[in-house]
Design a protein around this nucleic acid. Structure first.
Length: 813
DNA sequence: TTAAACTTTTAT
DNA sequence: TAAAAGTTTAAC
């Protein structure tokens, strides 16, 4: 028998084996429909074809081959397997992250009438039968929604048992290509003489003038080529629809559909700029590193023109017929960069990220899979762009390499796009370039130790100076009562000066919403989430208290829930409140806000960033989003409202991240000729990180951090694995975590820290415990992960421990 | 993820 | 005591 190992879109430990129908033309990477369990039909991807049926049980047969050609390449399956192994999750989970929804077939259950004619039926059964008979068949989900929720399943079950109805599973392709209406001449009329005769005939009657006109317009648009097919809209722009209609009815014209791209047509406009001597030197060094098959780190200060270098490298690959993957940490950045790259490469640039709908993503997927020569040669995207079916990938660029948003946390696979890209590049034999003004400690270490090539670009483009950074002591400001809401005197004057000088301001506060929490002035009570251990954030927009962990919201009462006092005050400043305070402080100033709440809609980024770029907005207030490599010409001042929150995190990466964030946002200031300035407000102005931000000392921070990491055994000197346990009962999770930790110690898996609870111990009524494993960064990593795997599966043998959900986060961020 | 098998809670 | 609600488990 021929067998197919099928990856199913579920968190199963491994692919399941099905029997292939005889003579089935099946290949690795094709989609197949298979039955799982009693009735459910799923589509999966064939990972392997072989002749070795598993020992246990009977084999089910593949129900249907969906594709004639594979939709997934063997290289991708290799990548999925690597990812599932390295990040310790199921192949199905990787597949779920990788495949666009348009390729995941929707399996639907339909209810049809059965072979047995029902006799005695009750009212509800009658209802079901009527619905099924009237419509031929009904969606199971629709039927369930018209029946009372509690008994729907039961009613249907009896009816199935009686043979009155049955359930049929279907699998349907959800991808719909976009089409447009076209007009062409019918076969008989694709001849000048015939057409001329027709025109003459029609001209005889005055009533047919419109038709003659339509034919002339068609002739003109077709430029004499009568085989041509013209977009209907081009014709109806000039002549009436009814004339076309008549000609179609007479069989002179034909209506046709043509598949078109969902993505508009763009034209390359300009030649890339010549590189400066410094850029040229960096470019040559990068080429050299690529020549040695090494990933290369391009460490270039903000505004050093890294993009120009990327452009030149991309151009080369395109000339060479290759594909390029350009990874960015944020969707907002793709919005900015796409316009820039399209100026050079036009339609060859494609975008791919989570804001695209299923059809758009599938279209990009197919274009990459088919290696189309005229579209999607350069893919610009967030981390999911990693999963496209590249065939001729020659270059990967990971821009803003240090960004933590390259790491996915939930759901599995908990992968780091930068690290996965490095694996991919070596497998695909593609070059890979990591770019950053503030490289991560790990990457810098790899460059220092010769694992990566290292190229530095210290010169800002046009020789501009780095911004002046000033730290304002909030303790002083408070003492002298010179704080106005969240703003210190120096920040206020700087904003006024910048705005009156016709330049723009960016304000950064890493908290969205209006106020992080409410507090009763009498008893100190803080309203918290009912199902999570966090306070509720007040959102003025919608006048609502919201939990940022589970999303649940409630109306804020007018009085304290604990003591009934009416004196409840809002504590702290989120972006929403900062924007409002600013409007009160500087009336007439135009503001905009860039955070999760203002960018929910698909086009929101484009709109907000567009208005800021056009100068319609003078002050842009935002969360992390404003720090990540946005380029604006006229920003003269960047204000960091509260630096302490970032410095006080007790995670080993907190200092590194705080520095990166501040250095990056500072880099937004001062682009068009004038030196920019940065004001950081902090209660701890002497913190060493702030001092280093003032000095723009990236390598100093990294050197210091490397010392600390070496002393305290943190990455890159060890590898970390975080094990998270979750359950409704706090005690059970604790007990299980203690047991697992003890077991890991006994098995000598590595250095075991914990168990303890993560910063937020309860989310959605589930209590969390975590164990951190520190593993040596050597060849024992894989066997140690195997030890961890078996220790976790051992929990199954205990009826209590097995109830606890466990997940693993490799290289946590 | 799903659904059947199994267990615990709740209402009458 | 039955029904409802919640848990657990296996899937080729």
């Amino acid at each position: 028998v021929r067998c197919a190992d099928v990856i199913l879109p579920l968190a199963l430990p491994r692919p399941l084996t099905y029997r292939l129908p005889e003579n089935a033309l099946c290949a690795v990477g094709m989609r197949v429909a298979v039955q799982l369990g009693a009735g459910k039909v799923y589509t999966g991807i064939v990972a392997r074809i072989h002749q070795h049926p598993p020992d246990s049980g009977t084999l089910k047969e593949v129900l249907e081959l969906v594709d004639e050609e594979p939709v997934v390449t063997p290289q991708q399956i290799a990548m999925w397997e690597w990812m599932a192994g390295y990040y310790m999750c199921g192949l199905g989970e990787v597949m779920n992250a990788a495949l666009p929804a348009g390729l995941r077939l929707a399996a639907e259950s339909w209810v049809e009438h059965g072979d047995v004619v029902p006799e005695a039926t009750d009212a509800r059964q009658r209802m079901v039968l009527d619905a099924v008979l009237n419509n031929g068949r009904m969606r199971l989900a629709d039927l369930q929604s018209i029946l009372p929720v509690s008994s729907a399943r039961k009613i249907l079950r009896t009816m199935i048992a009686n043979g009155w109805i049955r359930i049929q599973e279907t699998v349907e392709d959800t991808y719909k290509p976009k089409e447009r209406n076209m007009i062409g001449l019918a076969a008989d009329y694709r001849n000048e003489e015939v057409l001329e005769a027709l025109v003459n005939e029609l001209e005889a009657s005055r009533r047919n003038q419109k038709q003659v006109e339509a034919l002339l317009v068609f002739h003109q648009l077709a430029q004499g080529n009568l085989e041509r097919v013209i977009p209907e809209k081009d014709i109806t722009d000039k002549v009436s629809e009814s004339a076309i209609q008549t000609l179609v009815r007479k069989g002179v014209l034909e209506r046709l559909k043509e598949v078109v791209s969902r993505f508009g047509v763009h034209q390359a406009l300009i030649e890339p700029r010549e590189l400066s001597p410094a850029q040229e030197a960096a470019y040559q060094q990068i080429r050299q590193g690529f020549g040695q098959q090494l990933p290369v780190l391009l460490h270039g200060v903000t505004s050093s023109g890294k993009t120009e270098i990327y452009v030149k490298l991309i151009q080369e690959v395109l000339d060479n017929g290759g594909q390029v993957l350009y990874l960015l940490p944020e969707i907002a950045l793709t919005t900015q960069l796409i316009e820039r790259l399209r100026k050079y490469f036009g339609d060859l640039v494609g975008v791919y990220h989570s804001r695209f709908n299923a059809n758009e993503r599938t279209e990009v997927w197919n274009a990459v899979l088919n290696d189309t020569p005229d579209r999607h040669r350069v893919i610009l995207g967030a981390r999911s762009a990693l999963f496209l079916p590249y065939r001729t990938l020659q270059l990967v660029i990971v821009d803003e390499e240090h960004e933590s948003s390259f790491k996915q946390y939930d759901p599995a696979p908990r992968y780091h796009a930068r690290d996965a890209a490095i694996w991919m590049a070596s497998r695909w034999k593609a070059a890979i370039l990591l770019g950053s003004a503030t490289p991560s400690v790990e990457t810098y270490w790899n460059a220092q130790t010769g694992k990566y090539g290292y190229v530095q670009l210290n010169e800002r483009f046009g020789g501009m100076e780095l911004p002046r950074v000033e730290v304002v002591d909030l303790r002083e400001q408070r003492k002298w009562k010179s704080l106005k809401g969240p703003f210190s005197q120096p920040l206020i004057s700087a904003m006024e000066e910048t705005i009156s000088g016709g330049r723009q301001v960016i304000l950064f506060q890493n908290r969205r919403g209006f106020s992080p929490f409410l507090q009763c002035e009498d008893c100190g009570h803080v309203p918290g989430c009912h199902q999570c251990d966090v306070s509720l954030t007040y959102h003025k927009q919608g006048h609502i208290l919201r939990c940022h962990y589970c999303g649940i919201s409630e109306a804020p009462g007018t009085e304290c829930k604990a003591c009934g006092s009416a004196r409840v005050r809002m504590v702290g400043y989120g972006t929403e409140r900062i924007e409002e305070e600013l409007e009160l402080l500087l009336p007439g100033v135009t503001t905009a806000r860039l955070d999760l709440d203002t960018t929910r809609k698909k086009k929101a980024y484009q709109q907000i960033l567009g208005e800021f770029a056009d100068g319609k907005v003078q002050v842009l207030v935002g969360t992390q989003m404003v720090t990540k490599g946005l380029d604006f010409e006229k920003v003269g001042l960047v204000g960091i409202i509260g630096a302490d929150a970032m410095l006080n995190f007790q995670d080993f990466r907190a200092h590194e991240r705080a520095f990166q964030l501040m250095a990056q946002v500072a880099g937004r200031a001062g682009r068009s000729g004038m030196r920019g300035s940065v004001i950081i407000q902090a209660y701890k102005p002497d913190h060493w990180i702030l001092q280093r931000v003032m000095q723009h000392d990236t390598t100093g921070v990294i050197a210091q951090e490397l010392l600390i990491r070496k002393n305290y055994r943190y990455p890159p000197f060890v590898r970390m694995v975080r094990v998270v346990l979750r359950h409704k009962q706090a005690e059970l999770v604790k007990e299980t975590a203690r047991h697992l930790a003890a077991r890991l110690t006994a098995l000598d898996a590595g250095e075991v820290l914990g168990p303890n609870h993560p910063p937020v111990a309860r989310v959605m009524d589930q209590y969390h415990q975590q164990i951190i494993l520190k593993l040596p960064a050597d060849h024992t990593l894989a066997p140690r992960k195997q030890v961890l795997r078996s220790a976790i599966s051992e929990l199954q043998y205990n009826t209590q421990y097995r109830k606890v959900r466990v997940h693993v986060d490799v290289d946590p961020y």
